[in-house]
């Protein structure tokens, strides 16, 4: 399970970084989204991998799931969602104002 999750995280971050380094705003935005997914996932598993643990106190159990990473990841998801929405709108506006979707606003090369 650990191996699977770390592999997933690694692939997501690698794809995110690759997309982030592209020259078009659309792929950059996708890269940002992938990165924030990976980071949220990472935050979530900082509470360790367990199955079938109670979240609140129950009389017959001695260990519990750590509730804090879940609270953190919720906050991070909300903030990440707002930021993504903002960057999408900004990318659209940049595309309109600069008349290109290149991140540096360079004009399209005519073939």
């Amino acid at each position: 399970m650990e191996l699977l999750i770390s592999a997933c995280l690694g692939v997501m971050i690698a794809c995110g970084v690759y997309l982030l380094l592209r020259a078009r705003t659309f792929s950059v935005v996708l890269g940002l989204i992938l990165m924030s997914f990976a980071v949220n996932f990472f935050l979530f598993i900082t509470g360790r991998l367990h199955t079938d643990l109670p979240a609140i106190i129950s009389p017959d159990r001695s260990i519990y799931a750590d509730p804090l990473p879940q609270a953190l990841v919720l906050t991070a998801i909300v903030i990440g969602f707002a930021m993504t929405a903002f960057v999408v709108v900004l990318a659209l506006r940049a595309g309109r104002e600069l008349e290109t979707d290149h991140v540096d606003g360079k004009p399209e090369k005519t073939q």
């Binding site: 900004l90 990318a91 506006r93 940049a94």
Partner: peptide, 8 residues
């Protein structure tokens, strides 16, 4: 807008 995009 361009500088803002990089900053964001």
């Amino acid at each position: 807008t361009r500088a803002g995009l990089h900053y964001v």
